[in-house]
């Protein structure tokens, strides 16, 4: 039980959720709920892993993961934006589709060792006591990318003109349309951005945080946790990042509870009977439910809600398509 180690590991695993959740923030801010995050992540994890293995180049692997997630998300875009299908059902089928594709194309990848994303220290910053070892030492490049990405995403959404258009499309698409904003085009774009980030999140698992291909165990429900985080985060990248890192750290801290024989001066029941570990494994899922309850209550009190047009297809006039 070492706080430094727990926080360090939390930042690494939190980066997975961070990319996926912020990607979903973009998509939902544009008014498209995409429940297919789990499927896109798994496909991204597979595409990244196999490309890195085949080419020996991890950067091509990351690129492949991003593109794979993005392309898969376009299927959701087509069905929900143009065919006005129910976004919930379409997102679910995207999960099936992504999972199925990843399993079929990922046959025989288990146990292989492709090049991975490099880890390194940030010179200078890593020397700061406590903060250095936690934030700037021996992290994968993707973790550092995550640090930079969060404020950029926030700034883009809340402080730039394209970001304002993004929010308008999700809040009042008809008004945005009247102002000459391309509602359909922007929705496609941000669904695609969300898919790309989910793909990257998948590759963050398979090429960095817990390298390898373990079929559906690779993501083990993290895509769904990311979708839950977005609600907890009230569609704000900063809160999403906070939630993602907190989640990562809690997850690691809880696993570490199994280690010591004595805890707070008492015999550690988890150490004596490892079967109680099943309850530990439940905690991420219980925490997600709790986070949702808290997020929903806060949202109700502050009258903060989802983007007003979230889940609704935009139909211009009567013609629709």
């Amino acid at each position: 039980m070492n706080l430094e180690i727990i926080l360090h590991a939390g930042l690494a695993t939190g980066t997975i959720l961070l990319f996926a959740a912020i990607g979903e923030v973009f998509s939902e801010r544009a008014g498209v709920l995409n429940l297919g995050v789990e499927g896109m992540m798994l496909l991204g994890a597979m595409a990244g892993f196999s490309t890195s293995l085949a080419t020996g180049n991890v950067w091509l692997g990351l690129l492949a993961a991003i593109i794979a997630g993005g392309i898969l998300s376009l299927a959701h875009g087509l069905v929900t934006i143009h065919f006005q299908a129910d976004q919930v059902v379409s997102g679910l089928s995207l999960t099936f589709l992504g999972t199925g594709l990843a399993l079929v194309l990922g046959e025989g990848l288990t146990g292989k060792n492709p090049p991975l994303v490099p880890s390194f220290n940030i010179p200078g910053l890593s020397a700061i006591p406590f903060i250095g070892p936690v934030f700037f030492t021996d992290h994968s490049l993707l973790v550092y990318v995550g640090y930079l990405f969060v404020p950029l995403a926030w700034y883009f959404i809340f402080r730039t003109r394209p970001g304002m258009h993004l929010r308008a499309v999700g809040e009042k698409p008809d008004a945005a349309d009247t102002m000459g904003v391309n509602v359909y085009g922007l929705r496609y774009l941000y669904v695609f951005v969300g898919g790309c980030l989910a793909g990257l999140a998948g590759a963050t698992i398979s090429l960095s945080v817990s390298p390898g291909w373990y079929s559906t165990q690779t993501t083990s429900g993290q895509g769904w946790i990311a979708v839950g985080l977005v609600i907890f985060a009230q569609w704000d990248p900063l809160r999403a990042a906070f939630g993602a890192y907190l989640f990562g750290a809690l997850r690691r801290g809880i696993l570490d509870l199994q280690g010591p024989a004595f805890l707070l001066g008492m015999k550690n029941p988890l150490y004596i009977n490892s079967n109680y570990g099943f309850f530990l494994q439940m905690t991420p899922y219980v925490l997600t439910i709790l986070a949702l309850v808290i997020g929903s209550r806060q949202a109700a009190r502050k009258r903060l809600g989802a983007p007003a047009a979230l889940g609704l297809p935009y139909i211009r006039g009567e013609r629709g398509l």
Binding site: G39, S93, L94, T95, F96, L97, G98, T99, G100, L101, A102, L103, V104, G106, E107
Partner: peptide, 10 residues
Amino acid sequence: PSGLAQLLQG
């Protein structure tokens, strides 16, 4: 391959 049935469902 084993994921085929799932792919078909999707």
